[in-house]
Design a protein around this nucleic acid. Structure first.
Lengths: 205, 205
DNA sequence: TTATTGACTTTTTCTTTCAAATTTTCAATT
DNA sequence: AATTGAAAATTTGAAAGAAAAAGTCAATAA
């Protein structure tokens, strides 16, 4: 990693703290520059605009999460344990970086290309991880899926989407409480168990 | 049904057209009154406020949908067919009354009590319908669920939530297109099949 | 007593304006 | 290539006032 990349990484690291805590809207480039004791203009030397820096931060955190998930996955020898681990790690990161993840999804206006790219990338990476879990389970004979990637996609959409439904009833204005996160997590795990069970003898069609 | 109730029903019917097409925000009480050729004040004689009228419309449409679902359910003798039918009917109504259903979920500010009540009611009704499907399937020996209501809740949260995830990637500003609705529906059906399969030999715990 | 209304009040939303904050650019410097 | 200060361009936020919409009520008709 050359000097340029090192500095970039440093900026990302610092920006992460601000973005994770206050979200993109409540964080200014001036603040990030001040945190790093350098000029705002220099930030623009390393990142073309605020959104790109934000996207870089998002990518960084997501990859950190995936690396942690994969790490835990090494010791695991059955798919149920693996998927529940994925859900747990997801919950931990979502709670810690709520403002970060929230933004990308929440904006109703048009999404900048760079951000869209990162979100797509992150989504693909997560599907891949889960698809790999399914593939291994397939090999072990635990389940029987012809298309692990598709199954992963279905499961992730369902599991992640649950969040919106569970929170819908309650009046969740800002950041969900620990209890609300736990409720979501519990639901997601129940879904996971039934879903995996459903893959055991999936009908071929 | 006495005169009072008849008039109420007429108001609801007329209001439905406006709300379904323009949503609650873009529909005024004056417009509804004009449609009915009566005074705005009279609307307030029948409904305490705009939200209550909106809630009544929502309840009316939801019950219409559930009645249609149940009707179709009568001829069906297996759970998969039944659940797929539920998804189809849901799609049809969601497409037709998109602006209607969208509102309740979308408002980030606090939800008025009356609207919350109706949404809860509608949610409960749908859970009951699906739980009944599961119970019947249980009796037929198709599946094996100790808690059909809980299973229904999990499935509905997952299935409905999918919508948000599937639409997230794409830039869906306003009303989703037919294609997007179809994509969601396809996903939901795949989930349904795996989920039902997962209930066949559910682990007791 | 119930249904209905027009005129009224209150509340919310929209528009405009303007200053301040923030993002973004750039020529000059190390 | 890395860095900066200063300035331009853009976005945001507050204030104020107008317009629209929600909601009320005393009077009237049936």
């Amino acid at each position: 990693m050359d000097n340029h990349d090192k500095k970039r990484a440093l900026i990302i690291e610092t920006a992460t703290k601000r973005f994770a805590h206050f979200g993109i809207a409540k964080t200014t480039m001036t603040e990030i520059a001040k945190d790093l004791s350098l000029s705002k203009a220099l930030l623009y030397y390393y990142f073309p605009d605020k959104i790109s820096l934000y996207a870089a931060v998002l990518e960084h955190i997501a990859k950190k999460m995936f690396s942690k998930i994969k790490q835990g996955l090494q010791d695991m020898d059955n798919s149920e344990e693996a998927v529940l681990h994925l859900i747990d790690m997801r919950l931990a990161f979502t709670m810690k970086y709520y403002n970060l993840f929230d933004q990308g999804l929440n904006s109703l206006n048009e999404m900048p290309d760079e951000l869209a790219r990162v979100i797509q990338l992150v989504s693909d990476l997560e599907i891949k991880i889960l698809a790999d879990i399914f593939k291994k389970a397939n090999e072990r004979g635990e389940i029987l899926t012809e298309d692990p990637t598709q199954a992963a996609e279905i499961f992730l959409n369902a599991m992640i989407g649950m969040r919106f439904c569970v929170l819908k009833d309650k009046k969740v204005m800002f950041i969900p409480t620990k209890e609300e996160f736990d409720e979501i997590s519990k639901m997601q795990k129940k879904l996971a168990i039934i879903f995996l069970n459903g893959l055991r003898f999936q009908k071929q069609h």
